[in-house]
Simulated scan of single mutants.
Amino acid sequence: MKIVSVAMHPLLMATYLSAILFSESPELFPRIVPEAVPQFILVIFITTALMPALSIFLLKSFSYISNLELTKRKERIRPFIFIVFYYGASSYLFAEKLQMGPVFMTVMIGVSVLIGILIVITAWFKISIHATAIWSSVGFVCALTILMGVDIGWYFYALILAAGITCASRLYLGYHQPKEVWSGAILGFIYSFLTIAIFL
């Protein structure tokens, strides 16, 4: 179960979702030629996963947080601020420099706002970020499938299965109570679905 939590880490969701959409629905990204897709996925990974992860590691090194899993609610605020900065900067990069399509930009900006919402929630309640992140991905995909006819094939079912296993792993490892996982899953799915429904 520990492996599941690491493999489905919230910081990796943007990379996974981008890779799936590029693979199965390249028409959503008209400005990216197929030859440039690997490099583009790498940029997404660096800006939304690697750099935030390094920031969390540095916070641990300087004893601002007690562990890399951020199990203590009050220690999550500072790392989340770093993460929302990276996502906001990435959104600006992709919008102004690379001029990505509306779908990608809606997802990136939507995730940036969602992280801001999580910062506020975390001040009072230890919501499951794993559950929020992966069910947010499910919400985006469901909205794209239902509202825009996007078809990602078997990845759709694999994503839902991964979401269920990820939530179970957080409970099994004792990192969260059921209400923390359920609230994260519901928030992530509804927020992301409505983001696509309203802004696209």
Rank of each mutant, 00 (worst) to 15 (best):
I109T: 10
I109V: 09
L173M: 03
I127Y: 08
I127N: 04
V120N: 11
G164L: 06
Y92S: 08
H130L: 08
Y172C: 11
C142R: 12
V107S: 09
A123E: 15
L144S: 01
L159D: 02
A123K: 14
S128I: 00
A143H: 09
T132L: 12
F125T: 05
A163S: 15
F140V: 05
G139V: 04
L118W: 01
A123Q: 14
V103W: 14
L171M: 03
I119V: 15
A133Y: 11
V138E: 15
A131V: 00
S136H: 08
T106K: 05
W135R: 00
Y92F: 04
A168N: 07
V111P: 06
G164T: 07
L159R: 04
I127G: 10
T122Q: 04
A143Q: 13
L98S: 11
S128M: 04
L159S: 02
V111R: 11
V120S: 11
V120W: 13
L171W: 02
I115Y: 07
V150P: 00
L118V: 09
M108D: 07
V111D: 12
K97N: 13
W154G: 01
S112P: 06
D151G: 03
C142P: 13
L171C: 01
Q99Y: 13
A131C: 03
I121E: 15
W135K: 00
V103H: 10
A143W: 12
M108I: 06
F156L: 10
G101A: 11
F140E: 10
V141I: 05
A95F: 07
I115C: 03
S128D: 06
F94M: 07
D151V: 13
A131I: 04
I127W: 03
F156S: 09
S128Q: 00
L144K: 02
K97Q: 15
I146V: 14
I165M: 03
E96N: 15
G149S: 08
L173R: 02
I127Q: 05
I129C: 12
G110S: 06
L147K: 01
